[in-house]
C-alpha cells in the first residue's frame, strides 16, 4: 500500500514534481495555462525529464501517445479546456490504442477559480469526460497530493488508458 510521509503543510506542486520523478516519468507534454506555467519551468530544468511544449492539446495528446509507444512513462499537463478540445484524438487514438497516460489537468471554472470566463468550461468538464469515457478523479485538497498522483498513474497503467486527475490551484500552481 502506498504510504505518505508528506507533511500537511507541504508545498503541493513540489510534491507533484517529486512524485513524477520518483515514478519514472521521463517526458511531460504540455500546453500551459496560468496555473501550470511555473511547474513547467521546473520540469524543463529537470535533467532526467523532457518537456515538450505543444501548440494544441490534441497534438500534445498524440505526442504523449508516441512517447509512451516508445517506452517512456509520459504525463500530459493541460488545462481542462484543452481536454475538451482533444476529444477526437482521445477516443480514436489514446483510448482506441489503449495508451496509458497520466493527465494532470488544471480544473478551471470551479467556484474556487476567480477568473469568471473559465466558468463555462468548468461546468462542461466532468459531463464531457463522462461522455467520452475518460477515467478521471478530482484531487482532495485535504489529503496528501503525492499518493493521489501515484494512484492516478497506477490506474492509467493497470487499466491501459488515459486517466485525468483534475487539480485545484493549490495542487499545481507553484
Amino acid at each position: 500500500m502506498t504510504t505518505s510521509t508528506e507533511a500537511p503543510e507541504a508545498h503541493r506542486p513540489s510534491v507533484v514534481l517529486d512524485t513524477l520523478k520518483r515514478l519514472g516519468f521521463g517526458t511531460v507534454v504540455s500546453v500551459p495555462d496560468s496555473w501550470l506555467g511555473e511547474i513547467l519551468i521546473r520540469i524543463d530544468q529537470e535533467p532526467g525529464m523532457t518537456l515538450v511544449r505543444a501548440t494544441h492539446e490534441e497534438e500534445a495528446l498524440a505526442i504523449a501517445c508516441g512517447s509512451r509507444l516508445g517506452g517512456v512513462r509520459t504525463a500530459l499537463l493541460v488545462q481542462n479546456a484543452g481536454v475538451l478540445s482533444m476529444g477526437a484524438g482521445m477516443v480514436s487514438l489514446a483510448q482506441r490504442y489503449q495508451f496509458p497516460l497520466l493527465m494532470l489537468v488544471s480544473y478551471r471554472g470551479t467556484p474556487d477559480d476567480p477568473v469568471f470566463y473559465h466558468v463555462p468550461k468548468g461546468r462542461a468538464t466532468e459531463p464531457v469526460f463522462r461522455g467520452i469515457g475518460l477515467a478521471h478523479a478530482c484531487t482532495d485538497r485535504y489529503r496528501p497530493i503525492g499518493p493521489q498522483i501515484e494512484h492516478a498513474a497506477t490506474y492509467a497503467e493497470e487499466a491501459s488508458c488515459p486517466f485525468a486527475l483534475l487539480m485545484g490551484r493549490e495542487d499545481i500552481q507553484w
Binding site: E58, A62, I63, G66, S67, V72
Partner: peptide, 15 residues
C-alpha cells in the same frame, strides 16, 4: 485520428 501522425512520430522519436 487524421492529423495526429506527425505529433505521435515526434513523441516516438524523442523516446
Amino acid at each position: 485520428a487524421m492529423g495526429l501522425t506527425l505529433p505521435l512520430a515526434l513523441g516516438l522519436a524523442i523516446a
